[in-house]
Amino acid sequence: MTSLLEKAFEVASKLPALEQNILARTLLDEFESERKWDELFSESEDVLAQMAAEALREEAQGMTTELDPNKL
Rank of each mutant, 00 (worst) to 15 (best):
M1P: 05
M1N: 06
M1I: 06
T2F: 00
T2I: 00
S3I: 00
L4P: 00
L4K: 06
L5E: 10
L5I: 08
L5H: 07
L5C: 01
L5M: 09
E6V: 01
A8E: 07
F9W: 07
E10Q: 07
E10G: 06
E10D: 08
A12F: 05
A12L: 11
K14H: 07
L15H: 01
L15P: 03
P16F: 01
A17N: 01
A17E: 11
A17P: 06
L18Q: 12
L18G: 03
L18V: 06
E19S: 10
E19T: 05
Q20F: 01
Q20S: 01
N21F: 02
N21G: 08
I22E: 14
L23G: 02
L23R: 03
L23E: 04
A24R: 15
A24K: 15
A24D: 08
R25V: 01
T26W: 07
L27Y: 11
L27N: 02
L28V: 08
L28A: 09
D29W: 03
D29R: 14
D29I: 04
E30L: 12
F31Q: 04
S33E: 14
S33Y: 09
E34M: 14
E34C: 07
K36G: 02
W37R: 15
D38P: 00
D38S: 14
E39Q: 14
L40E: 13
L40M: 12
L40G: 05
F41K: 13
E43Y: 11
S44R: 15
S44K: 14
S44I: 03
D46A: 15
L48F: 14
L48V: 12
A49L: 12
A49I: 08
Q50I: 03
Q50D: 13
Q50M: 10
M51F: 08
M51N: 14
M51A: 15
M51R: 15
A53E: 14
A53K: 11
E54H: 09
E54A: 13
A55I: 07
L56N: 11
L56I: 13
L56H: 10
R57W: 03
E58Q: 15
E59T: 05
E59Q: 11
A60R: 12
A60K: 10
A60I: 01
Q61K: 10
Q61T: 00
G62N: 02
G62S: 03
T64E: 06
T64D: 04
T64Y: 02
T64H: 02
T65S: 10
T65F: 06
T65Y: 07
E66Y: 09
E66M: 13
D68Q: 03
P69E: 03
N70I: 02
N70L: 06
